[in-house]
Simulated assay, not measured.
Amino acid sequence: MKSGEVSPASLHTTVLLHEVVRWLQPRPGGRYMDGTLGMGGHSLALLEAAGEGAELVGLDRDQEALALATRRLEPFAGRVHLFHLPFSRFEEALDEVGWERIDGAVLDLGVSSLQLDEADRGFSFIHDGPLDMRMDPDSGPSAEELVNTLKHGELARIIRVYGEDPLAGKIASAIVREREKGAITRTLQLAEIVRLAYPPKMRHTARNHPATRTFQGLRIAVNRETEELEHYLATIVGRLKPGARLAIISFHSLEDRAVKHAFRDAAKGCKCPPHQLHCTCGGVPEMKVLTRKPVAASDAERDANPRARSAKLRVAERLGPDGEEA
C-alpha cells in the first residue's frame, strides 16, 4: 500500500468473519464465491484459510467497493475473479469463469461502513447528503425519486413492509404533506420529517433514531434487495457441489425470515401441498440446515463493532442427488 493511502480494512469491520470461515471450511483447490464482496474482508479470510490453489469469484454493484477490494486481494491475483454485478446475477459470473459448481458461498446482506459513512451516498440519517441510497449510483431510481413521486399507499407499504415500522401510515402522510411544499432532496430533511411524525413520547423513548426504519425500507426498495435475495435463494442451490456450504448474514427480520424459510424448504424435499397425506412429487432434500438457530456475534465483537449487534448468520450444506450427505 502506498504511503498515505487508507486501508480498506480501516474503512469497514467485517462482521462474523471467523464464524463464516469456520462454517464454510475452505480447503486447498476449492472454488468459492462472495456475492457481496464489499471491501473483501470475507473473501480475504476465506482465501487465507483455504490454502494453495483456492479461487474465488466476488461480486459487488458498488464500483468504489470493488476498487478497494481489488487492492486488498492483490496477494491472490490470478486466483480472484471480480465482477461489477449484483449478487442475484452470480450465474453470469460463474459462467464467465467456466465454473459449473462451487465449493462454498457467502452473502453478507448488510450495508457497508463505506456506504453509511459517506454522506454523498445518501444512506445515513446522521450525516446530511443527497437522498440517493443506490448501491450502484448508475442504476435505477434514487430514494429522492421514490419519496417525491410515489403515492401515499405505496410509500406506506415500503415503510411498513420493508422498514417494519408500525407508524408507516403517519410517516407517509407527513412525507406527502412536506413534498407539497417543495421537493425532499436531503437525508437530514427526510430524517427530520420522520422524526416529527413520531408522537413526542415515542421520540423520547425510542431506542433508535425514529428515521431508522424508514431509511431501511427506502434502501431496500431502491436497491430491490428483496427481489435480489429471492432470486439468489431460488438459484444458488443448483450451483453448489455436494458438501458445499452456503453462509448468509442478515441484519433484519425480513431478510432472516427469507433465508430461514428457503433453507427449511430446501431441507424438506417434498413440495406437495401441506394438506396432502402422502408425497407424490418424489422430491428429496437438497440442503441440510447446519444452524438450528442463527449464529450471533460474540459479546466482544458487538462491543467492538456496534453494527454487528443485529447480525444473524445461517448456514446450510448441499446434499447429494439422492438427498444423502456428501
Rank of each mutant, 00 (worst) to 15 (best):
171 I>C: 12
81 H>G: 11
322 D>L: 09
287 M>I: 06
131 L>N: 11
296 A>G: 03
230 E>C: 05
142 S>D: 02
82 L>G: 04
319 L>Y: 05
212 T>S: 12
268 K>L: 09
52 E>T: 12
233 L>Y: 07
282 G>A: 05
162 Y>K: 06
244 A>N: 12
69 A>G: 10
257 R>C: 03
188 L>G: 02
92 E>I: 10
277 L>R: 15
6 V>I: 14
322 D>T: 07
40 G>C: 07
272 C>T: 12
185 T>I: 14
47 L>V: 02
89 R>M: 03
285 P>M: 05
73 L>Y: 04
85 L>G: 07
101 R>T: 10
152 H>Q: 13
245 R>H: 13
230 E>D: 15
317 E>F: 10
28 P>R: 09
72 R>Y: 09
104 G>H: 08
19 E>M: 06
51 G>L: 06
93 A>E: 12
138 D>L: 12
227 E>T: 10
141 P>F: 03
249 I>H: 05
20 V>G: 02
143 A>T: 07
291 T>C: 10
219 R>Y: 02
218 L>S: 07
284 V>P: 00
24 L>T: 01
189 Q>V: 00
326 A>Q: 11
266 A>S: 09
133 M>G: 07
268 K>T: 11
317 E>P: 05
251 F>G: 07
90 F>H: 14
64 E>H: 15
11 L>F: 02
272 C>Y: 03
287 M>V: 03
213 R>G: 08
83 F>S: 02
177 R>C: 01
126 I>N: 03
171 I>V: 15
132 D>N: 13
214 T>Q: 14
86 P>E: 11
44 L>G: 05
200 P>L: 09
301 E>W: 01
267 A>I: 10
90 F>A: 14
14 T>G: 01
93 A>P: 15
300 A>P: 01
170 K>F: 08
93 A>M: 11
85 L>W: 08
24 L>Y: 05
57 V>L: 11
135 M>K: 10
318 R>I: 00
156 A>I: 01
86 P>D: 13
149 T>P: 01
206 A>Q: 12
212 T>R: 15
128 D>N: 15
67 A>M: 13
304 A>H: 01
118 E>S: 15
302 R>S: 00
162 Y>H: 13
